[in-house]
Design a protein around this nucleic acid. Structure first.
Length: 400
RNA sequence: GCCGGAAUCGUGUAGUGGCAAUCACAGGAGACUGUAAAUCUCCCGCCUUUCGGCUUCGUAGGUUCGAGUCCUACUUCCGGCA
């Protein structure tokens, strides 16, 4: 019988937890470390699957919450699954909807505050749309206000209807502003029991749906920025029969490497670890150094659509007046389609005129930039130059 | 030439006797980390780092305690009629 997922470690980095590897799914391999672009609603906004593949993306991630609301996971199931539905033949991930527990609840407009300080992370102007209890979450649809219930079993049923190769356990994403006591309670009463329920339902569905390729399930480690909780969560989930692990939750940016290390020192080494929602270059280096294998994040696509493009010297707002008559390629060192064919002045013009092509070209560039960054990091682990590359890249990227 | 209407921020507008400058666009800049995001925030007459100060409703007069607002003339523009 076909296995849902196999993971092979290929190279290791001396003096750190970093490794390269290969994840094999029914829809192909992912060479790790890898960046996985996010196509929440079964599309990476502004790109065709061919354009996405041309960025070098090895896989993409969709979201159970959005696809549950529209078109409905039953519809995707009838379409023969997400790969067929969205015309993406490579590996896919689906998020559990756990993120929306937070983003539609306490975290609105301040989804991942990674600063570790600042104002309480509480919805103020708009009414929150999600309320959580120990059994699951009650949602009000952001689309039509209809009420819905999401719990570990329904999340897994949705994710099996979607049919992504790698699914995630339904979890509670806390914020850095929750108290320690709340973080403890969140793990003991929700995230961990929900992981058990997610795995049970997932196992049942894989058996019941043998006409489909088997799907893999990653447990999601939480614990905010507390070492004891991160280790406890990783140990608890690490002893369960997951195919891999999601490293989730809000992580204080300045400690992201350390927090990743806590988790990965406890997790089984021979299973892949996916860093949920991370793509800033410094964070990627820190997480890979400490044992993360894959990443997903909306940021390259979102900031690109909003006119911010990555360069080796940092992020640049292409709408700035200085680019109006700058007829150089956007980034002479970039091998993406956008930089090969279009000037800064033209990109500037497209954004000034709100032309949709601007979104497409900026998204192509940003996804390619982050995919290539992670690919280059992978090569640097293989040839042992990781630390030198990290130092050189970050010095240039964050220069002021 | 006659009749009527209009003139407020770069543009279009709000303000119809009581602290001018509302809203939008344009413009300047910033933010965005498991997507309620082709979104959001700030600035946008002049001076001032801030606090704040100053100016200004086509022009010139007039009425009034007080005028962007009412009156007169002029200028310009837009209609209509010749």
């Amino acid at each position: 019988m076909q296995k849902a997922l196999t993971f092979e470690i290929i190279d290791r980095l001396d003096g750190a937890l970093a490794r390269t590897g290969s994840i094999t799914t029914p829809h192909g391999k992912i060479h790790t470390p890898a960046f996985i672009p996010v196509g929440t609603q079964a599309t990476l906004k502004a790109l065709t699957p061919e354009q996405l593949a041309a960025t070098g993306a090895q896989a993409c991630l969709v979201n159970a919450y959005h696809l549950f609301l529209r078109p409905g996971h039953d519809t995707i199931d009838k379409a023969d699954g997400i790969h067929s539905f969205m015309n993406w033949s490579g590996p896919t991930f689906s998020d559990s909807g756990g993120f929306q527990v937070m983003s539609l609840g306490v975290g609105f407009k301040k989804v991942i505050d990674m600063t570790g300080n600042g104002a309480p992370n509480i919805t103020q102007k708009k009414k929150k749309l999600a309320t959580i209890d120990d059994d699951g979450v009650t949602f009000k649809s952001h689309l039509d206000g209809s009420m819905h219930r999401l719990d570990p079993e329904t999340s897994m049923q949705i994710q099996h209807g979607i049919g992504a190769d790698i699914t995630f356990a339904f979890d509670e994403l806390t914020t850095l502003h929750h108290s320690y006591d709340y973080q403890v309670e969140s793990l003991d009463r929700r995230t961990h029991p929900w992981a058990i329920r997610s795995l049970a339902e997932h196992t049942r569905l894989n058996a019941a749906r043998s006409h489909r390729p088997p799907q893999a399930l990653f447990g999601v480690v939480q614990g905010a920025n507390h070492e004891d909780l991160r280790r406890k969560s990783a140990k608890f989930l690490g002893e369960m029969d997951f195919d891999g692990y999601g490293l989730g939750g809000a992580l204080e940016k300045s400690r992201i490497g350390e927090i990743t290390r806590w988790m990965n020192e406890e997790l089984p080494e021979n299973k892949p670890r996916h860093m949920l929602g991370i793509s800033e270059p410094d964070d990627i280096f820190d997480c890979i150094e400490n044992g993360a294998d894959t990443f997903d994040c909306v940021s390259p696509a979102r900031v690109g659509r909003n006119g911010a493009l990555y360069t080796n010297a940092g992020r640049v707002n292409i709408t700035r007046a200085e680019f109006k008559e700058d007829f150089r390629p956007f980034d002479e060192n970039c091998d993406c389609y956008t930089c090969k064919h279009y000037t800064r002045a033209y990109l500037h013009h497209l954004f000034r005129t709100s032309e949709l092509l601007g979104n497409t070209l900026a998204t192509i560039h940003n996804e390619r930039f982050i995919v290539r960054l992670v690919d280059t990091i992978r090569a640097s682990i293989t040839d042992g130059t990781f630390f030198a590359y990290k130092e050189q890249f970050l010095a240039e990227y964050y220069q002021q």
